[in-house]
Amino acid sequence: MKRQRNVTLLLMLILLVAVGQMAQTIYIPAIAGMALDLHAREGAVQNVMAAYLLTYGVSQLFYGPLADRAGRRPAILFGMAIFMLATLVAVTTSNLTVLIAASAFQGMGTGVGGVMARTLPRDLYAGTELRHANSLLNMGILVSPLLAPLIGGLLTTVWGWRACYLFLLALCAVVTFSMARWMPETRPTGTMNMRLITRYKTLLGSGAFTCYLLMLIGGLAGIAVFEACSGVLLGGALGLSSMAVSVLFILPIPAAFFGAWFAGRQNKRFSTLMWQAVASCMAAGLMMWVPGWFGVMNVWTLLVPAALFFFGAGMLFPLATSGAMEPFPFLAGTAGALVGGLQNMGSGALAWFSALLPQNSQFSLGMLMTFAGLLILLSWLPLALRHGQHEQTV
């Protein structure tokens, strides 16, 4: 009975996180139309995603402690209310600056989903079951980025880009009602009553937690910068239609789905899986950058390295999240806030920086993805040494 209850909670969590995931990517095929309607350049529209990611990350630093103190349910309902109000503004505005501000408030609302994606599994599982649950959760979450660009491309073609935000508003309303009606409270009864600064000092004082956190920042940053640049490169530089962009945009995402499944196999050593994830991300960054040095760019030079990076990141997310969260069962909300918050702040900053760079080739994209892969590698090396010593003594 308990197992069935836990599976139901994971499904509800997937729907919650899907709202935030779709808000980030559903308008990718509509970037050209948004720029035309709002009288802005396409590169400037990328700031909509950057603003969303930054506030999505910052807000998590507050939702985590709130969830530890007040409970998981109140935090979720509060965040979803903010998202719905911001989405109403996004639907009605004709000004890019207002749209960017609305996107920032959307991220502020859905930040609660980012926290819960890391907190609820730790409430329900431990050990190898936690790694397996995080793997299943990431596989489920990856379905929404697969669907979002296709839905966005269809809505944009038929009704225009504002229909994307109307769809998000309806989806959020359904999810919020479901959470309010059926979700139980999962906060552990022994959750520590500590000052906020003490919570963060405890977590950041752990070297392993910090290394896992940096790896997660690198993984999401590499994905975010591809998402931010791909619409401009495929639609603007290569001249593809919005529907073609939406189809090509989702092609690397199944690789992340497969990576999450690959990481969830219980008969493989943790360190072996981590090395495979790290190597995939590092190689993918170089594969994206090298063609840019020679001025080569086509659909294949963009999508093949992206698929490899998505595969590595798909492995990395459940593995590194489990490694970071498992030692802190009674600080799960705050730990999830730091993991999700700083992860998304870092990826948002890189997406914002990518908007400032030239978008007529894949050189800038490859450079930033290589940087993300290098951050992952350098953060894993001290952990790999520690795991190697532990395995020798066992």
Rank of each mutant, 00 (worst) to 15 (best):
M243Y: 01
Q362P: 08
G348A: 07
G218I: 13
R162A: 06
G341Q: 03
N134G: 00
G295Q: 12
A256S: 10
L213D: 01
L303I: 15
R187K: 11
A355S: 15
G341N: 03
A335I: 09
W300T: 14
G57C: 07
F317Q: 03
T128Q: 12
F294S: 00
L11P: 08
F353H: 03
G71V: 10
A67M: 12
M22C: 02
Q362W: 15
A126K: 01
S178V: 11
G218H: 10
S206V: 00
R269M: 03
S322C: 05
L385Q: 11
S103W: 11
T8P: 00
P358Q: 07
T92I: 09
V296Y: 15
L154I: 14
G323P: 11
Q343T: 08
T119H: 06
V45T: 14
A101S: 04
S206L: 02
M192P: 01
L331H: 07
P149Y: 04
T87G: 04
T301V: 14
M139D: 06
I217S: 04
A81K: 13
L273S: 00
Y212W: 01
L204H: 04
T334H: 00
I82K: 08
L155I: 14
R72P: 04
A101C: 11
E326K: 07
V143S: 07
H387C: 03
F249T: 03
G333S: 08
T272K: 00
A335V: 08
G20S: 05
Q392D: 13
A70Q: 09
W289A: 00
L365D: 11
T202P: 01
G333Y: 01
T186R: 13
M1E: 15
P65V: 04
A307E: 10
M139V: 10
V143N: 06
A117P: 06
N6G: 06
M80Y: 15
G259D: 07
N344Q: 13
K201C: 10
F270H: 05
A75Y: 11
L13E: 03
L155R: 09
V304K: 15
G190N: 08
M183D: 00
A208I: 06
M315F: 07
M325N: 03
L10T: 14
R118L: 06
R265Q: 12
V158P: 12
A70L: 13
L234I: 09
W275C: 00
K2L: 13
I141Q: 08
N267Q: 07
V158S: 09
G388V: 02
L154E: 02
S379A: 15
M367N: 06
V45S: 11
S379L: 08
L378G: 04
I100E: 06
S230D: 08
T202C: 12
V143G: 03
G346R: 00
Q389S: 11
F62T: 09
G231W: 05
A75G: 11
N344L: 13
M194R: 10
L350G: 01
G153T: 06
G295S: 13
A306L: 14
A284L: 09
T321F: 04
V17P: 02
Y52W: 14
F317G: 01
A263N: 05
M345Y: 05
T92D: 09
A44E: 04
L365Q: 06
P29L: 04
W300S: 14
Q392I: 04
Q4A: 15
V232R: 09
M315H: 02
M116W: 14
L142Y: 05
A90T: 12
G43Q: 12
M139N: 05
A228M: 12
A126W: 00
S271Y: 02
L11D: 03
V17E: 02
T176L: 12
A32Y: 03
A237R: 09
R269L: 01
